[in-house]
Design a protein around this nucleic acid. Structure first.
Length: 109
DNA sequence: CACGTGACCGATT
DNA sequence: AAATCGGCCACGT
């Protein structure tokens, strides 16, 4: 079942607004959504996205350290899938799943 | 209502 | 550089 709490709605709205070709981190999304210490929750929410919600650019959210932070396969989604999605919009991802934050960070205007 | 969970994070070994 | 450790808190059960 899918809940629709205020926080969850905020998270999905914010993630949807990340421009193509840029990335941000879970903590930033949590802060913008109104709960600065709920970065893990953001991960949980994105993890729970279903097929209908796959237009939400969840792949533009990575860890603060600049790495893709999926380490398992969840419903056909894994770090390789995320890497490919990022690369398909021009973001370079090294073979160890690291992204150059200086180059691709989403700057909030 | 109450716990266990974790696509996190920063500090500490 | 890499592993470990607490704190965190919405979500699922």
């Amino acid at each position: 079942m899918k809940t629709n709490s205020e926080f969850r709605k905020n998270v999905l709205n914010i993630v949807s607004s990340i421009p193509k070709g840029t990335v941000t981190n879970y903590g930033t999304v949590a802060t913008l959504a109104g709960s600065p210490n709920a970065a893990r929750v953001v991960g949980g929410i994105l993890r729970s996205l279903t097929i209908e919600e796959n237009e939400i650019p969840w792949w533009r959210v990575i860890s603060k350290s600049g790495r893709i932070s999926i380490n398992q396969n969840i419903g056909g989604i894994d770090k390789v899938v995320q890497k490919e999605k990022l690369e398909s919009e021009g973001i370079e991802v090294s073979m160890n799943y690291k992204i150059n934050m200086r180059k691709y960070s989403w700057i909030i205007s």
